[in-house]
């Protein structure tokens, strides 16, 4: 147990980007749009942040924060493709999401080849510095994002309207809500948060961006949204659980009691847990009812 406490900063370092991305994914699905491009959007954010931080690092101490902001904006920009295809054109949301994932892998490596003449970004000297207790500020960002998301979704009129668009868009529209506008905003929020999360990930866990940097974190976030039953507190819990599983697969070599198991055992846990719970919860309406369905104005 004490081992686990000693690992807490590392666990939170891994949980933070997953949680930030998952909150974005939840907001998106609550408005009625499924976003399986989270993985790709994180990659775009991570690439942008790593590149900007490399160039700004010598110039300013604020470099880390500017880099994360730029990562968020890059994620937002790319998410507009998904928004346009799935909201304005009623396209299949899974297809445009898949397209963005493919595009992100190729696009980031391509840009790295152009900017740095190699398939990854040049390593930066120092990433983000851990704060009190060895905990990175990204953990506090993640906490803040969850709290703000909960407050806006459940305590503000905008959040109520957003949820209405995901439950029954026709009813929402007849009450005078701009369904498409709100869905656009939701997709952009999820793009921004995924980009920020990508930036947080690359600046805390590594020193450069490669196409293996994200390594499924976006898909774990997607799993965390389902396992967290589309609720802020549920998603906080599921991200914590999944992040712990990921960190155990990395740091288990330090814990003698766990060394009997292969590291793949922990890597595979988030996915198996999610599958099993999807079966157990089947038939109960936890998911937003209109999630994934285009809203067609008649």
């Amino acid at each position: 147990m004490s081992d686990l406490f000693a690992m807490l900063p590392s666990i939170l370092m891994i949980v933070a980007p997953i949680l930030i991305t998952a909150v974005g994914g939840m907001i998106c699905e609550k408005s009625g749009v499924v976003n399986i491009a989270l993985e790709g959007l994180m990659a775009v954010g991570a690439f942008t942040a790593a590149t900007l931080h490399y160039f700004l690092e010598p110039a300013t101490v604020l470099s880390v924060w500017l880099a994360i902001l730029a990562g968020g904006l890059a994620g937002l920009a790319i998410s507009l493709i998904h928004a346009f295809a799935s909201i304005s054109l009623n396209a299949n949301q899974v297809i445009s999401g898949t397209g963005i994932n493919l595009l992100a892998t190729g696009g980031t490596a391509f840009m790295a080849q152009i900017v740095f003449k190699m398939e990854r970004t040049m390593p930066f000297r120092l990433g983000m510095m851990p704060g009190f207790g060895g905990i990175y500020p990204t953990a506090w960002i993640a906490l803040g994002v969850v709290l703000v998301a909960w407050f806006v979704l459940y305590k503000r009129p905008f959040g109520m309207r957003l949820r209405a668009c995901g439950e029954h868009p026709q009813a929402a529209a007849s009450a005078g809500i701009d369904v498409r506008g709100i869905r656009y905003v939701a997709v952009m929020i999820s793009g921004f948060l995924a980009g920020v999360a990508g930036g947080c990930l690359v600046l805390t866990q590594t020193i450069q961006y490669t196409i293996y940097t994200i390594n499924g974190a976006g898909f774990i976030a997607l799993a965390a949204v389902s396992f967290g039953r589309w609720l802020p507190k549920g998603i906080a819990g599921s991200s914590l659980l999944f992040g712990t599983a990921v960190s155990l697969s990395i740091y288990m070599v330090n814990i003698p009691a766990l060394r009997v198991l292969p590291s793949e055992f922990f890597s595979v846990m988030p996915y198996i847990i999610t599958l099993v719970t999807l079966v157990l919860f089947s038939g109960r309406d936890y998911a937003p009812r209109a999630s994934g369905q285009p809203y067609e104005r008649s």
Partner: peptide, 25 residues
């Protein structure tokens, strides 16, 4: 030529196919 251009072309093709819904619209 950065070899990732082929991945970009594949990705673009998929994105454009999703935009095909617009043609139907």
């Amino acid at each position: 030529i950065p070899k990732e251009i082929t991945l970009i072309i594949s990705g673009l093709v998929v994105v454009f196919i999703s935009l095909r819904a617009g043609v139907k619209l």
